[in-house]
Amino acid sequence: MLGVVASLWGVVMALAPVLQIHRMIKKRSSADVSLGYFGLLLPGFALWIAYGWTRSDWPLVVPNILAFTVSTVTLTIGLVLRKRDRVKDS
């Protein structure tokens, strides 16, 4: 039961960066978002996915796949917006 509850909360945590995505798109800027933070999280998510996969621990794998995906999207949008801002400022 604890594994299921922890996994469900892991899904909620994995979706939390969607709030940052929404803010970046709304403001058309990623200036107030730490992209390095998301860059540091990605290898950690990948390691937890690999670990969970080797143990067939799906309550560990599923939230981390979701977190990896959402963080990748967040990082990608942030980088695109920053590149656009640099081109616009040039």
Rank of each mutant, 00 (worst) to 15 (best):
L66V: 08
S56D: 04
L41T: 10
G39S: 14
I65R: 01
G52S: 05
F45T: 13
S56N: 05
R28E: 15
P59L: 04
K27T: 15
W48D: 14
L40E: 09
S34V: 11
K27R: 15
G44W: 04
G44K: 06
N64L: 07
I65Q: 00
G52K: 08
K27E: 15
I65A: 01
A50D: 09
S34F: 05
V61T: 03
P63R: 01
T54E: 05
G39W: 00
G52F: 05
L47H: 06
I49Q: 02
L42T: 06
Y51I: 09
W48I: 12
G36I: 11
I49L: 03
L41W: 07
R55N: 08
S29G: 10
P43L: 10
G52M: 04
R28V: 11
A46H: 01
R28L: 14
D32Y: 05
A50V: 13
D32C: 08
R28I: 10
I65P: 00
W48L: 14
Y51P: 08
T54G: 01
I65D: 01
N64M: 06
G44T: 11
Y37I: 12
W53G: 06
P63T: 04
Y51V: 09
W48T: 13
V62S: 03
A50N: 08
S30G: 15
A31S: 15
V33D: 15
V61G: 01
L40W: 08
I65Y: 00
A67K: 00
N64W: 05
L60I: 11
V61N: 02
T54K: 04
I65M: 06
F45E: 10
V61M: 00
A67L: 00
W53I: 02
L42S: 07
L42F: 04
P43E: 11
A50Y: 13
V33E: 15
A50H: 09
T54S: 05
Y37C: 13
S30Q: 13
A31R: 12
L40G: 15
L47P: 08
R28K: 15
L35P: 08
V33S: 15
I65G: 00
F45K: 08
P43M: 09
T54F: 01
S29P: 08
G36Q: 10
Y37P: 09
G39T: 12
P63Y: 00
L35H: 04
S29I: 11
G52H: 06
V61E: 03
F45D: 10
I65N: 02
K27Y: 11
W58M: 09
V61I: 03
L66E: 03
A50R: 11
S56E: 02
L47G: 13
I49M: 05
L66Y: 01
L66H: 00
L42V: 07
G36P: 01
L35C: 12
D57M: 02
W58R: 09
S56L: 08
A50I: 14
G39Q: 09
L47C: 11
S56T: 06
G36N: 12
